[in-house]
Design a protein around this nucleic acid. Structure first.
Ligand SMILES: [Zn+2]
Ligand SMILES: [Zn+2]
Ligand SMILES: [Zn+2]
Length: 445
DNA sequence: TTTCACCACGCCCTCTGCTGGCAGTTG
DNA sequence: ACAACTGCCAGCAGAGGGCGTGGTGAAA
């Protein structure tokens, strides 16, 4: 469980049990938020600096020298460093995302900025094992990988450095080693857990069987107790494996119907039964189970959308979104065909919804009346008829409406210059609504 | 172990068409 | 005066398009 001696990468923060992340307030404009980085610095690149490509850049950042870690880490702390490269174009900020950081040296950390990776992890960890205090680094060298940025890029690039401090509460630090629960020696001094705690990963050293039983129980208190169990514990306690000689091993989740042929998939799946979300967005405090989800989320803040459509201006966070967009807008490929009519759709869920118009199935029932709808949106829209809410307001006369479409027609008919009129083809009558024309002269339509 | 591609689910939007209440007009 | 007719209007539901998000198998 402990990082091996020769490992180039210090163990990532998120795997440290019992860790709490704390932040000092250093930003004046924090607006009452409970979180901020220990340090945020912005520096413009100096494209004329020595060693622009490849070599460590002493003068990459304004002020020269390596990036000093301030405050520098002390024993028992980890410091996480993130670099965010920002392109400044004609006064606008064009966020290019957070670049991946590679650690090449363990003392005197060296980051390498890569382009396009837009990755928040692994983050730099500046913390040595017990007894290695004398080697704690106080600075970070930053270099830019050869060819990732052009000279012009560098002229308009700003680097934001985000540094946060992680304190480790070793008194609660339990590590599972070879199936046994062991407690690490307590930290030298119990550091204060000041300001704000985002997460608190507890491992309960309870009897496995007792706790297993509560995960099937609907009693709320017990559910809550189960929910704070660490996923490692869940893995150890709740999975069952079924094997006969010569057969494939099937791993079953004891908390749901999930099965998998891979232990790794089951382990990953077990996290979905836990409330543990160790990956916290610095910008909005939303927490995620996986680094990938956090990275995608951070990209929504920064506007980083690496997957650009070649046929229009749209861009997306994930490749899947782009592929789907292209089917909707450009290739018009609709693989899901209805067997009862000519309808086809880009997505399977749309076909499933469409088929309800053949079967008449209405799974979504209103609990206040007899109405039932074929999809969730229509039920939600229906519920405003009970609440009396009118969410849409005409910007001209402030009249309110229950549906946006109704308001749109209102604006068109009442406030537009060229109000559309429908003329009966058999006389000179003009009527505002096509449907009223059809009512008046039904035999013509 | 991490990343990628894929998938399912969910949310929100628009377009469309029908309905009943209402007020003005007409016979 | 009154009923019938007529057009206007907002309410509301049906259907479908488009995209964001999180989980999973498989590849890297
Ligand atoms: Zn496009
Ligand atoms: Zn059909
Ligand atoms: Zn209802």
């Amino acid at each position: 469980m402990m990082a091996s001696e020769d490992s180039a990468l210090p163990e990532p923060f998120t795997k440290i049990k019992g860790a709490e992340r704390t932040w000092d307030r250093t930003r004046e404009d924090d607006g009452g938020g409970k979180i901020s980085w220990v340090k945020e610095r912005n520096s413009m690149c100096d494209p004329h600096a020595e060693g622009l490509n490849g070599a460590p850049l002493a003068k990459l950042l304004e002020g020269g020298g390596n990036l000093e870690l301030s405050p520098s880490p002390v024993q028992g702390e980890k410091h996480l460093i993130m670099l965010q490269t920002v392109h400044l174009k004609e006064g606008e900020e064009d966020f290019q995302g957070i670049s991946q950081l590679n650690i090449q040296q363990q003392s005197g950390v060296h980051m390498v900025v890569q382009r396009g990776a837009s990755v928040l992890q692994p983050l730099v960890v500046v913390q040595q094992g017990v007894g290695a205090q004398q080697n704690l680094p106080t600075g970070v060298a930053i270099s830019i990988q050869d060819g990732v940025y052009t000279f012009h890029d560098m002229e308009v690039m700003q680097i934001n450095v985000l540094q946060e401090k992680v304190q480790i509460d070793r008194s609660k630090d339990l590590h599972v080693v070879e199936g046994k629960v062991q407690q690490l020696p307590p930290n030298e001094e119990g550091r204060e857990k000041d300001i704000f705690t985002v997460e608190k990963a507890k491992i309960l050293s309870c009897d496995a069987k007792d706790d297993m039983s509560v995960s099937h129980c609907e009693h709320k208190e017990q559910e809550e107790q189960a929910s704070i169990k660490n996923t490692d514990t869940l893995e150890a306690q709740t999975n069952t494996q079924h094997r006969k000689k010569g057969e494939k091993v099937i791993f079953h989740c004891d908390l749901c119907a999930f099965t998998s042929l891979r232990m790794s998939s089951l382990n990953r799946h077990m996290k979905t039964h836990s409330d543990e979300k160790p990956h916290v967005c610095h910008l909005c405090l939303k927490a995620f189970r996986t680094v990938t989800l956090l990275r995608n989320h951070v990209n929504t803040h920064t506007g980083t959308r690496p997957h650009k459509c070649s046929d229009c201006e749209m861009a997306f966070v994930t490749s899947g979104e782009l592929a789907r967009h292209r089917r909707y807008k450009h290739t018009l490929e609709k693989p899901f065909k209805c067997s009862m009519c000519k309808y086809s759709s880009v997505e399977a869920s749309k076909l499933k919804r469409h088929i309800r118009s053949h079967t008449g199935e209405r799974p979504y029932k209103c609990y206040l009346c007899s109405y039932a709808s074929k999809d969730t949106y229509k039920l939600k829209r229906h519920m405003v008829t009970h609440s009396g809410e009118k969410p849409y307001e005409c910007y001209v006369c402030q009249a309110r409406f229950t549906q946006s479409g109704t308001m749109k027609i209102h604006i068109l008919q009442k406030h537009s210059e060229n109000v559309p009129r429908y003329q009966c083809p058999h006389c000179n009558t003009f009527i505002a609504r096509k449907s009223d024309l059809e009512l008046t002269f039904p035999r013509f339509y």
